[in-house]
């Protein structure tokens, strides 16, 4: 029974001590501890929020970057295709022009050759005529020493010429 009987002295000291401890802790210790814990919690939750937002932003940027890259690639492909086409066309045109030029040149050359050939032929004919005349002169001088003979020969030539 002695164990179950409260002792007024101990009750008094416990009350006093407990109330003083409560007051001291509430006044001097707990405010700064609780404030620090609250600040830390809030900071952590803000930081998490920030991190989440940053991650979303990064994702957004990533998408944007991919889109830009895709666009750039498409444009490059288009430019390349166009360039290739242009190159082919230029080559073709150049080839065609060259062919035309060559053909024209060849025609001109051929014409020149033909003309020169004709000229050469004329000159040759002239030269042959001249030579023929000179030869004929000499032959005639030789042959026309005798009158009769002369006549005959002339007639022969004349006949021949008429036949020509």
């Amino acid at each position: 029974m002695e164990l179950l009987t409260p002792n007024p002295g101990l009750v008094f000291w416990t009350t006093l001590t407990f109330i003083l401890l409560l007051l001291v802790l509430r006044k001097y210790a707990l405010p700064s501890i609780m404030r620090a814990l609250k600040v830390r919690e809030e900071t952590i939750s803000f930081a998490l929020e920030d991190a989440k937002r940053a991650r979303e932003e990064v994702e957004h940027l990533e998408q944007k970057k991919n889109k830009v890259l895709e666009d750039a690639r498409k444009e490059r492909d288009a430019i390349l295709a166009e360039a290739r086409e242009l190159k082919n066309r230029i080559i073709e045109e150049a080839q065609a022009a060259a062919r035309e030029e060559g053909r024209k040149l060849m025609e001109k050359v051929n014409a020149d050759i033909k003309k020169q050939k004709e000229e050469a032929l004329f000159e040759i004919r002239d030269a042959i005529g001249q030579l023929s005349l000179e030869i004929a002169e000499k032959v005639l001088k030789e042959e026309l020493a005798d009158r009769e003979k002369q006549k005959k020969v002339i007639n022969t030539y004349l006949n021949q010429m008429n036949l020509n």
Binding site: N7, P8, G9, L10, F12, W13, T14, T17, L20, L21, V24, L25, Y28, A29, L30, P31, S32, I33, R35, A36, L37
Partner: peptide, 30 residues
């Protein structure tokens, strides 16, 4: 009427000293 600092009361003071030391040093560090 007995208001002595008995063994229990002394032990209680010791516990209070411990608790105060713990919390006040923690509060200062915080």
């Amino acid at each position: 009427a007995d208001f002595s600092i008995t063994q229990n009361v002394a032990s209680m003071f010791l516990s209070v000293a411990l608790i105060l030391w713990m919390f006040l040093s923690a509060a200062r560090n915080y």
